[in-house]
């Protein structure tokens, strides 16, 4: 009974937040705003999906914002140099895969603690991206940014991309041996090893998935913003972790979901800032609120975890 209730908790919180904002401002509960909100949330949802995967395996990736930035920098450089949009679109996931591969190697082969490795990488990749862009904002051609307004069967492209990615991730998580083994590893890595799972390879692949998700999220954000600014992707890791954990993924590994979990979490986090925007909140409070949301998420996770641990 309690377990069922707790499983619905992210959804309930989402409803409560939405209800509160619609009381505060009439601009919130409109179709236009809902569409706007979902479009805004699409890149956050992809990031949160990738983060959920990493968290399911009981690891963490603090460098997602920098990976986004680095992939965007490479794409921007290619766009400006060769003026070929397909090249840029292909390059982004490749960059993501490479970043993920390196992180995976650092965590498995070199044996670093995941948060240390990815924290250092956060700075290294940001530095590498700044190097490519030379700390200047790169304005991208309209044929690239046009993707933000494109539609597929009447739905905005960003939302479609996010949905497809999340569905693919859910399939990976629920319906493949890889996903099931991640859950086992996240629950207890040593037992998983004893049960015959190649833990190192699986964790390495988890970081690949995370890298690709960063690249996809980077692509969505890039088309929406139209420029590679030096602060592109900064602090996105915080939102991703908050979204994943608010969506019900445990920080201690093994439990969680991509759909609906990560999606709800991402919408929730985006909604908070969308709502604050609409009620004309002091923009200087936003970082403060981000931090509070993460802290809230961690506390929720701790409570949830303890509740079931004593069972």
């Amino acid at each position: 009974m309690t377990r069922k209730l707790v499983a619905q908790l992210p959804f309930i919180v989402l409803l409560v937040v939405a209800f509160t904002f619609s009381l505060l401002t009439p601009k919130f509960a409109t179709t236009a705003n809902a569409a706007n909100l979902l479009t805004q949330a699409s890149s956050a949802a992809v990031l949160a999906g990738g983060m959920s995967f990493v968290l399911l395996a009981s690891c963490i990736d603090l460098s997602v914002g920098s990976q986004m930035f680095f992939a965007a920098a490479v794409a921007g450089k290619l766009l400006l140099a060769y003026e070929s949009v397909p090249l840029a679109i292909v390059a982004m996931p490749l960059v993501g895969v490479c970043c993920g591969a390196v992180h995976g190697l650092l965590v498995t082969w070199a044996g670093l603690a995941p948060f240390i490795a990815t924290m250092a990488s956060l700075f290294v990749l940001r530095g590498a991206g700044l190097w490519l862009t030379e700390t200047r904002a790169m304005n991208l051609p309209a044929e690239f940014t046009g993707y933000a307004d494109a539609t597929v069967a009447g739905f905005p492209l960003p939302i479609v991309i996010a949905c497809v990615t999340l569905l693919a991730l859910t399939y990976l998580h629920r319906r493949t041996a890889f996903g099931r083994q991640i859950v086992a590893i996240g629950h207890d890595r040593e037992e998983a090893y004893k049960a015959g799972i190649n833990c190192s390879r699986t964790i390495w692949q988890v970081y690949l998935v995370s890298g690709v998700c960063c690249a996809i999220a980077g692509f969505i954000s890039l088309t929406q913003l139209g420029t590679v600014s030096p602060s592109f992707g900064r602090d996105r890791e915080f939102n991703a972790i908050a979204a994943a954990v608010l969506g019900g993924t445990s920080l201690s590994g093994g439990t969680g979901s991509i759909l609906p979990g990560a999606a709800i979490g991402a919408i929730l986090v985006t909604m908070v800032f969308n709502g604050l925007n609409l009620i004309d909140a002091n923009p200087y409070t936003y970082p403060l609120i981000t931090g509070t949301v993460i802290l809230f998420a961690i506390l929720c996770d701790a409570v949830r975890h303890r509740h079931f641990a004593t069972r």
Binding site: Y171, R175, T176, A177, R180, Q181, V183, A184, H187, D188, E191, A192, K194, A195, G196, I197, G254, T255
Partner: peptide, 26 residues
């Protein structure tokens, strides 16, 4: 040495889940 968040079937066949295309042959 069982994993509480996986099903009975998944626990039984964890290291060699039957494959079909990209997924598991449910």
């Amino acid at each position: 040495n069982l994993f509480p968040n996986l099903t009975i079937a998944e626990n039984l066949f964890l290291d060699e889940l039957p494959a079909r295309w990209f997924g598991i042959d449910r």
